[in-house]
Amino acid sequence: MPVFHTKTIESILEPVAQQVSRLVILHEEAEDGNAMPDLEQPVKVVSNAVQNLIKVGKETINGSGDEILRQDMPTALIRVEKSSKLLEEASAMLKQDPYSGPARKKLIDGSGGILQATSALLLCFDESEVRKIIQECKRVLDYLAVAEVIETMEELVQFLRDLSPCLSKVTREVSAREKELTHQVHAEILVRCLEQVKTLAPILICSMKIYIHIIMQGGKGAEEAAENRNYLARRMSDEINEIIRVLQLTSYDEDQSE
């Protein structure tokens, strides 16, 4: 049984995966099998659904600026279409001979193929969505890198104006993503990192304020204040980098590393 790494993909494909597995088992146990019913109508419904997916898939490809999606999605669409053709062939063969063994094989290959190709397609789409979140995370990293050169209150205000909306977006999107993951360990890491980021953000801003006050008064301790600020910025960057790493993981990666 395939493992789906988001709850959305799981909810779409898990029921059909179970049905396909059952069909394979029934086929093996029944050996020569019973006469198959006329499958023309349900196969037609699948073919129409596949044509619609191909249309929507092509629109998604054309409307996306994501090069990886543009490269990977057509392959999945071709696989869905090929599997649909297998079902049409199986249906035609079964009309001639309801006991046909090769037709049953095509039926199993076709339905299994549709399941796998749809899974690949949804994964491709999902990975593209993850790349959008990662892009936002990288924007936060870019802003954090600027923290070291902020030396006036005006610059700090601008820094906050830039960072805040971006950080809010990352928080919102990573939080939603965490709820979507079927892999509990990955979800927990994201929650932990996000909590750290939320805790560190106001402390970092405070440390930047302290640094600015110290250098404005020309007082002692500027070096220590800068060190403290840099440490906090680095800690936040580390947490964001960990979020990026975990966002890219799938259950499959984890199983392989184990």
Binding site: V16, L26, N34, P37, V45, G57, S111, L115, T118
Partner: peptide, 29 residues
């Protein structure tokens, strides 16, 4: 979003097809 809806429709259609095919086999077991 449209992709998800289209995938849902395919999953439901494939499920119905496989169920119909399974029903005939199940009678034998």
């Amino acid at each position: 979003e449209m992709i998800l809806e289209a995938a849902k429709t395919i999953a439901a259609a494939t499920s119905a097809l496989v169920k119909a095919a399974s029903a005939a086999q199940r009678e034998l077991i």
